[in-house]
């Protein structure tokens, strides 16, 4: 009898999208999607989401390994901290980033005074905001996989003479690839859909910080049809990415 709740769950996910499709003005779709504002937003979204995913992987993999393998007590606290971006409302996350990297934030002030670098209102701020909210998805899926696998393969590798870095590179990472793939896809999807932290921390300016979700929100103020068309575009991009990346990730071949 699982199919009743399963069907409900599917309906909850699919029906709103069907609603979106039903409301789309298909006659105006090409014109709405090819406006320069839409194309700029799409390009910016793809570039920033890819960059954020790369940062998530580069930083998240070592973090997940440390969290899964460390036996110290403080790690339990750390694990909870890593999950914070998942529970924080994105707007609060954006504010937190401002308090750190904004002009009056302690790191932001330092950067401004010493190097003349200002992060808010730049594309870099978009990438940072997306990385911030997407990182937990990568870390959680990896850490789960690491815990499930245990460290037996790593132990064997070290007795075979592999130094810790070799073990990490030749055993830990390849074994993690399936989880890494799905974690990266999740992170990318989250980064692509990121809104609250971006608008708070990076602002909204066409071609610089106005990603697709921000453009959707912007258009929704003036022209709902345009917003719906853009939302459709966002969905298509997300579905494409998941469909293309997912099977390869699951296969787990390097």
């Amino acid at each position: 009898m699982l199919w009743i709740p399963a069907g409900l769950a599917l309906a909850l996910v699919v029906l709103p999208v069907v609603g979106l499709l039903a409301r789309t003005d298909y006659a105006r779709l090409p014109e709405l999607l090819t406006s320069s504002a839409s194309l700029n937003a799409l390009q910016l979204s793809l570039v920033t989401a890819v960059l954020s995913t790369v940062f998530c992987v580069l930083l998240g993999v070592p973090l997940a390994v440390v969290l899964a393998r460390s036996r110290s007590r403080g790690v339990r606290v750390l694990r909870a901290v890593v999950l914070l971006p998942l529970v924080l409302p994105p707007v609060v996350g954006g504010l937190a980033l401002l308090f750190l990297l904004g002009r009056n934030g302690f790191l932001g002030y330092l950067l401004d005074v010493t190097a003349g670098i200002r992060i808010p209102f730049t594309t870099a701020a978009v990438v940072i905001a997306q990385t911030f909210v997407a990182m937990p998805f990568l870390v959680v899926s990896l850490e789960g996989a690491l815990r499930g696998a245990g460290d037996r393969y790593e132990l064997v590798a070290s007795t075979l003479g592999a130094r810790p870095w070799t073990v990490f590179r030749r055993v830990t990472v390849p074994l993690l690839l399936p989880a890494l793939g799905s974690g990266a896809v999740l992170s990318f999807a989250r980064a692509l859909g990121e809104f609250g932290a971006t608008i708070t921390f990076a602002g909204s300016l066409e071609g610089v910080t106005r990603t697709l979700p921000l453009e959707v929100y912007n258009q929704a103020e003036a022209d709902v049809d345009s917003a719906v068309a853009l939302a459709l575009l966002l969905i298509v991009v997300a579905v494409l990415v998941i469909a293309v990346a997912r099977p390869r990730a699951v296969e787990g071949r390097p």
């Binding site: 209102f121 608008i199 602002g203 300016l205 106005r210």
Partner: peptide, 20 residues
């Protein structure tokens, strides 16, 4: 030539309040 075109007036105000 604004640094950002915010979605509502409160967001503009917040950016000024925070000194950004």
């Amino acid at each position: 030539s604004p640094a950002s075109e915010e979605q509502d007036v409160k967001a503009v105000l917040t950016k000024v309040e925070l000194g950004e």
